[in-house]
Nucleic acid binder design. Structure first.
Lengths: 222, 222, 222, 222
DNA sequence: GATGAATGAGGCTTCATTCAT
DNA sequence: TATGAATGAAGCCTCATTCAT
């Protein structure tokens, strides 16, 4: 807070950005607890004290790093690509779901180390927990509204609460990504996106008969 | 060096057990990083130095605490209750799934604080990660085999890989519990078990028509 | 290196004066040790680095602030008001002494915070100690000469060394002011001046019989 | 506070005492601000961390050192020596006052360095200021009661408030000692005690004619 | 003249671990 | 077996001072 207000010169902004980038890298590599302010300053190639010109504490820079990542993750998840033409609307829906999953899995994979550290830190920072909750909510709310629309149109079963269902299915993808990219279980990413898409769609009651072709999915995103 | 092998007197065993119990309590309350050996010794009402007669390090006692919990969680998940009679086999299947979820959610809830800490610690201990992986595998393997049986009997769709599917659905329940009990999002536990059960069954293709009654579930488990 | 000699532009003089004023205020409020160069620069509304264009160190500006105050204190102590007419020369003498005390107590009160800080700093700066010694000497010498005159005229006892006595009585007033205005013991300022005046006069042997009226003192100084 | 309750073994008590002694010595030599915990630990010949087993902070050990000294000073001031026989009661009174001053000056001299540091620190520690106030009060109250008795018996003038007078005269001695032993002005200690005694007595109105012999004072105390 | 960025020495404190009793 | 004293590495943070613009 003491530093938030200071308008910075170009040089100052550069140094600050170096620190943030360095912090992201070091946090991802060593985790929150094992990272010292010294490590960050070293990685940014500035003197120890310089760190404190821009941040009050290790926790503060971590919040910034975490917040940045959340925003990038949300942006990635919402950044729609053009949808190819489908004759069958259900097919299109499954395609959309699977594609969203693929996008998410890819951006998760690209940031897995840092995500893992944030996941860890969420437990001892209320502020971070709130940031994380908002990021989750942004995604879950969207899914929830989609489910509500499908229920209204009779495409999805009406006997599940859209809020619960959206949370559960979001949790499925989220945790699958965690297990895959953080804990290192071996899954193939396109196959995972296809499977998650089918499970998700069918769980809601969307008619997605066996043998559904998901091939065009990866084609479209390569 | 390693204290594991030393045979202990009755008094020694008592002291050791005190330490483990105290550690579980303190870790749950303060997290791994914030817990000091001093805290544990204090909580166990033994002198600081006594700790090191029984454990080589803070990490070692944590592994023991974590391992204990995993075993209890696995045991809870597998500890089958008698199944009521069902005329419809699909209904029975959904009932089994939902009940398993309920059992899991309840044992998760009862240990949420400690689970959270373990989840955290998994990231900086290979050994802990392995313990966690095994616990997950025990559950996922079982689910996988169940899916394989259902696929073989034509109850479940054959176009998803049972391994992927089992992982994904396990992840769904796991993460849902985490969000609910650790991060504190407000979900009602029986409703969650019912929803997760339906999503799980339908995702695989099990015919679970709308309005499926799950009432008997909570009856059976109260 | 030394900035004292540099001739300054009008703007420079203004900045320098701002720094000195700001320093006096901050030192008074926070003490020497707790005041940082940053605090001073902030209070003067100049950039951090600007400070070092005018002063070599925190100690240097403090010496200037302290020295300024000493000079003002000395000036106040010597700045004679017109003496009212007295028929009794002893009465006049007590009046003079009491009035000098009152003047001193008042100027002490008005600068108590800063005086306190200087008192503190005297201990770790030889230069400051010397300034302080000179200020004290200016006052003590005057008192000493007055005592010598009174002894010569047979008004005061001759069996005390004027130097010792002047020091002791000066110390009395000085320390009384410190206890009152710095440490915060509750004394009423006019009553204190009256008491100190009587004690001072009688200590030297000046005939100041009981019930000496000091009323005109406060009248004259209001 | 965290350490106050711990009962210490003999070895622990030894170490603690070493630290206190070392601290007194270092504080006296370097002042409060310039003394680091490291300095104290070094002087006590213990490891840095050992300090924190016994004290929470530099401030805490300083309070203990200061408090110890105050108690010793008070004890010295009150520790009465046998009074020689006097034919003249006024002479005896002056003798008592002068002797008290001499005792005080001597114990001040023996601890001047540390007293100076405490005087300094009083300004930024409320707790210390309170300790100091109590020590002063103990002395002033005694003097005040003595003055009241003398006024009642008609030995002292009744037109000064005993509380003000006691404070003022106490301040005189206190500050004289400070100037002499801390700031280093050159005064001879027995002569100072004699002068202070005469000034004190005469200030109150005690009849102490010129040429009062104080010789027996130093004889009695050597 | 003024700015604010950068430096790095130095202080405080914690705590996992070892040791003497 | 238990105790609690001792250790010292390691981390966080401040701030007087210098430097480039």
């Amino acid at each position: 807070m003491s530093h938030a207000a200071a308008p910075l010169t170009a040089r100052g902004q550069r140094t600050r950005a170096q620190l943030v980038a360095a912090a992201a890298s070091v946090f991802a590599r060593k985790g929150y607890g094992e990272t010292s302010v010294n490590d960050i300053a070293d990685a940014a190639a500035v003197a120890h004290g310089t760190f404190y010109r821009y941040f009050d504490s290790k926790e503060q820079i971590f919040r910034e790093v975490a917040s940045d990542l959340q925003h990038r993750m949300i942006a990635a998840r919402f950044d729609d690509e053009p949808t190819p033409e489908f004759s069958d609307p259900n097919e299109e829906m499954v395609w959309r779901i699977a594609r969203a999953n693929l996008v998410f899995l890819r951006s998760y994979r690209d940031n897995a180390d840092l995500i893992a550290v944030i996941e860890q830190a969420v437990l001892f920072s209320d502020e971070l927990r709130e940031i994380r909750r908002l990021a989750r909510a942004a995604f879950v709310d969207r899914a929830q509204r989609a489910i509500e629309r499908m229920q209204a149109r009779g495409i999805a079963y009406n006997d599940v609460d859209p809020h619960y269902a959206a949370h559960a299915l979001g949790a499925m993808v989220d945790r699958f990504a965690y297990v895959t990219f953080v804990l290192g279980d071996a899954f193939e990413i396109e196959e995972a996106a296809r499977t998650l898409g089918l499970l998700w769609a069918r769980a809601l009651g969307i008619d997605a008969p066996e043998g559904f072709p998901i091939q065009r999915l990866s084609d479209a995103l390569t």
